[in-house]
Design a protein around this nucleic acid. Structure first.
Lengths: 203, 203
DNA sequence: GTCTTACAGTTTACGCTGTCAACCTGGAAT
DNA sequence: ATTCCAGGTTGACAGCGTAAACTGTAAGAC
């Protein structure tokens, strides 16, 4: 009758409560603030209880990463279904990608800026699904598979460079941010369609 | 007369020995392996002794970051002094940047892929020097300052996207790596000189 | 109605991290 | 001879991820 510890709401199962708190913590204080003990104390359980529902801290993070990919995929695929020229569609999709990164920087960070090597192996099937957004870049080039894959990678890496540097606040703040984004997207799309040197050695 | 602990060589001062061991550890096992206790035990002193020579672990890392920037700057500035058209010079400089990242991935990681927010404030003067390489991108465009700065940022972010994704091994390994690099560099240089939408609102 | 089993938590503990405060020690200066 | 100090050590603290052992409780079987 005198619960010294903040007993949690038994209505929502613990797994969901943990995920919810992890989301809150990630969005509010960033990846660095995500610790099993902080999640547990906010949720009202012990740190080790998390391991009853997640194999490891990494696998909990992967659950969040998956949610991020679901939203990114949803946004990108939706925009890719619009009408217009391939170029203007690609531009819209690129814009959607950048917007996602800037609107949900904490999710972008765990999805794309975490060193993969030091994390447990990302489940293979999840990985396939995760890359869906990136395939859209390739498909929109309407090129043969191999060439398209390379062009898609170029577009993606260009946008990723922009987003990751903006998120990390490494870009000179005196620059006109919106103009930079617009120009970068334009440049990325150029890279998708322009004549490039390696055109010769594509199968 | 029976030194149970591996006594260090008193010829080299401790500060240099710590730095040397940090370099070795970084290059051999990556940033994640850099811990004060590992450095100390390899050097033959205690972890707290590191704080006699560095304000914090972060400031030790900054020393390594500075070394990285010195090498990058040296490479980039050297190449930028070559002769050839602005476009071909920019391409060479871009190549030098990418090569640095791929040849010294551990340094590239601490220089550009560490989240700055969670680190102590980077010393301002050091920061100015650090960005020297990036200014070269801007200068080579031979445009008015503000426009050049934006174009330089576009080139940089494009190359950074490529390098960081390659280092993190996030790019489909079935892609022809060399062709991807070549095309990306070409695309980045296009972005420096092509007509871009925001040309109107540059002062 | 009691015994068994399984689940869903907790407690405790281990080894790791960065860092601080207190202590020690040898040599130079007074 | 005494003092001072630079340059080290020891020990500790708070935090981390996580493994092992323990506990309470609910459902099923006899």
């Amino acid at each position: 009758m005198c619960p010294s510890r903040p007993t949690r709401d038994p209505a929502t199962p613990l797994r969901e409560a943990i995920l919810q708190e992890a989301r809150t913590l990630l969005e509010g204080e960033g990846y660095a603030a995500l610790s099993t003990r902080r999640i547990a104390s906010a949720v009202g359980c012990t740190a080790t209880s998390i391991y009853l529902h997640f194999k490891s801290k990494d696998s909990l993070i992967y659950a969040l990463i998956n949610e991020g990919f679901e939203e990114l995929n949803r946004r990108v695929v939706e925009v890719s279904k619009g009408d217009g020229s391939a170029l203007s569609l690609l531009r819209d999709v690129a814009r959607a990608y950048v917007d996602f990164g800037l609107e949900r920087p904490e999710y972008y960070e765990i999805m794309f800026m975490l060193r993969a090597e030091q994390m447990e192996r990302y489940p293979v099937d999840a990985y396939r699904r995760a890359r869906r957004s990136l395939e859209v870049f390739a498909e929109l080039t309407a090129l043969p598979a191999q060439e398209a894959a390379r062009r898609g990678a170029i577009v993606w890496s260009t946008l990723h460079g922009l987003v990751s540097l903006l998120i990390a606040q490494r870009i000179d703040i005196s620059l006109d941010r919106e103009a930079l984004i617009e120009d970068s997207i334009h440049s990325a799309c150029l890279g998708a369609f322009a004549a490039l040197p390696s055109g010769a050695n594509s199968a």
